[in-house]
């Protein structure tokens, strides 16, 4: 199936969960937050949250930034 990961199409096996997805893209040990279809998925629910075809997944992190 295809999910939309941070705005780009990504082919993954059907029934992939978020924990597996983070492993696949090498981010499992990073400090980040995950949204699926604009709903935040708590870290404790990564392994039980299974993705569906066309799900929009956003993975964000903190970076340097100001305002001014």
């Amino acid at each position: 199936m295809i999910i939309i990961l941070n705005g780009e199409d990504k082919q993954v096996d059907s029934r992939t969960n978020i924990e597996q997805l983070l492993n696949i893209i090498g981010l499992s040990d990073k400090k980040l937050a995950v949204e699926v279809n604009e709903h935040i998925v708590p870290r404790s629910e990564f392994s039980e949250t299974t993705l569906k075809d066309s799900d929009k997944v956003e993975i964000v992190q903190a970076i340097g930034g100001g305002s001014d």
Partner: peptide, 20 residues
């Protein structure tokens, strides 16, 4: 100190040092 929240780099620059 302020920080910004942005998309994580997927694949492009995996080893890029993160400020945090």
């Amino acid at each position: 100190i302020t920080i910004a929240i942005r998309r994580t780099n997927i694949g492009q620059n995996p080893g890029e040092p993160n400020l945090l």
